[in-house]
């Protein structure tokens, strides 16, 4: 069978597989972000009772492999707990695994926010939720975004293994081509290109977020300037000389 014919024939199924892959990537990605923020904040706490459970969860899910977690949730959990079904197992495993990695990124970027910023919030008597939400997290956000972007791409790539538990995502559908064509080699390359394009779109999208968060901290150009090439010549705000002395001093 011709290589293109096979592609056309399998087109709709490949498309369905692709949609499932995207679904897994987005849903697990968002859930993993929530897990990362919660565990990251806990792991950065000064209280041992808050920090310790977070550390144990993080080290556990980072230390055991993704596939082990998938298999455990799929084969072992039903023995004494709920049988989740392949979709939920896939989402849970991807969420917890990459969420644990993300938690490390969140914690590290929180500690990278300069000491002076923490002290300034103390000097203004801000409460913990207040300073986190308004001062510390917005600054840590710019620092953690590159790591989170990388992890999201990792999650996309990791999702290619969930066909093992019977999810008919993109890699699964690619493998089905084996039955009708000998061109799997070429088709697998098509598969790689598709994954590459998704990954590129994800990273470029996140780069815009990163630029926006940096602009909000007064570093780098605004999104408007990035997205319109005409305006790119504009220089970012530089230090101005000191203004007139107050009160007309000396």
């Amino acid at each position: 069978m011709n290589y293109l014919d096979a592609l056309v024939m399998h087109g709709p199924r490949l498309w369905d597989g692709l949609l499932l892959t995207l679904q897994l990537t987005v849903v697990s990605g968002l859930l993993a972000f929530v897990v990362a923020v919660v565990l990251g904040l806990m792991a950065g706490s000064t209280k041992l009772l808050v920090r310790l459970p977070a550390r144990i969860i993080i080290e556990f899910f980072r230390g055991t492999s993704l596939l082990v977690q998938l298999m455990w949730l799929f084969y072992v959990l039903p023995l004494f707990g709920p049988s989740l079904g392949a979709m939920l197992v896939a989402i849970f495993a991807l969420t917890l695994n990459y969420g644990a990695y993300g938690a490390e990124a969140v914690r590290a970027s929180l500690t990278s926010v300069p000491q002076g910023q923490w002290e300034a919030t103390a000097a203004l008597s801000m409460s913990w939720p207040h300073k986190m939400r308004r001062i510390i997290f917005p600054q840590a956000w710019a620092l953690m975004l590159p790591s989170l972007t990388n992890l999201w791409v990792h999650l996309l790539k990791g999702s290619s293994i969930v066909y093992i538990i019977g999810m008919s995502e993109f890699t699964f559908e690619l493998l089905q081509l084996r039955r009708t064509t000998d061109w799997l080699f070429a088709l697998a390359i098509v598969g790689l290109v598709v994954y590459f394009i998704i990954a590129l779109v994800l990273t470029q999208l996140m780069r815009l977020f990163e630029a926006r968060s940096k602009y909000k901290l007064g570093r780098g150009p605004s999104l408007k300037e990035i997205l319109s090439p005409v305006l790119t010549n504009k220089i970012s705000p530089a230090d101005e000389p000191a203004a007139v002395a107050p009160g007309g001093a000396r």
Partner: peptide, 18 residues
């Protein structure tokens, strides 16, 4: 970049069947 940003699972399959 291409190799880094695509799944190792699919890369394994490509070489395995190729």
């Amino acid at each position: 970049n291409f190799i880094r940003m695509t799944p190792i699972v699919v890369q394994l399959l490509v070489v395995f069947y190729g």
